[in-house]
Amino acid sequence: MNGKELIARRIAGELKDGFYVNLGIGLPTMIAACVPAGIEVVFQSENGLLGIGPPPAPDQEDPDLINAGKQPVTTLPGSSFFGSDQAFAMIRGGHMNMSILGAMQVSCRGDLANWTIPGKMVKGMGGAMDLVASAARVIVAMEHNAKDGAPKIVEECSLPLTGKRVVHDIVTELGWFHVSADGLVVEEIAEGVTKDDIEHRTGCQVYFSRHLRPMLPS
């Protein structure tokens, strides 16, 4: 199992029957395929779909039916369509249970930066700022370090923020990090990873939980 798969399968273990969940583009999208057997989770796509089905066969693609990553998807029994304003009423109005996003940087206080690099990248925040400002539990799913090895979990984000003090948990291939009022707490550690590894590859002070557990895929 590679790191991304471990992250997706561990976060899937947090899903509960009846949850409404929004998955960000990229790594978080992999979680849809990892829902534990026996529970039903409804995934929302903020472009106007509740109940995202699996990708269609190549000859069954419908250009009028896409997810927020602009990929063709399908519906499921019980799916519904709606407009963008209603999609964000669900998000802003606190009707969603969980929002899982990727990140470029997260601070130990839960500040999130995932939308722009000044002077370099002009893309936009899409729905990310609305999602993290909502009442749902916000989990960041990301690789622990940037491609050049730089820490992505930092004392203060140097990139423009998506939201301030909005992240509840961070899951990487190294472990599970909980943003608490007292600092960043390592709750779980992945197989073959040491406390030293985590300290060396993280850009802020971390505290290891007294109940530190191994991080296992669901």
Binding site: F88, M129, D130, A133, P160, T162, R165
Partner: peptide
């Protein structure tokens, strides 16, 4: 933010000149 965009347009059509949202606070 996308939700703010959608709501600003909805408000424009509904005769609501302004409103408050949490998205983007602190950014």
């Amino acid at each position: 933010p996308q939700g703010t965009l959608a709501e600003r347009i909805r408000a424009g059509g509904a005769g609501i000149p302004a409103f408050y949202v949490p998205a983007g606070a602190g950014t």
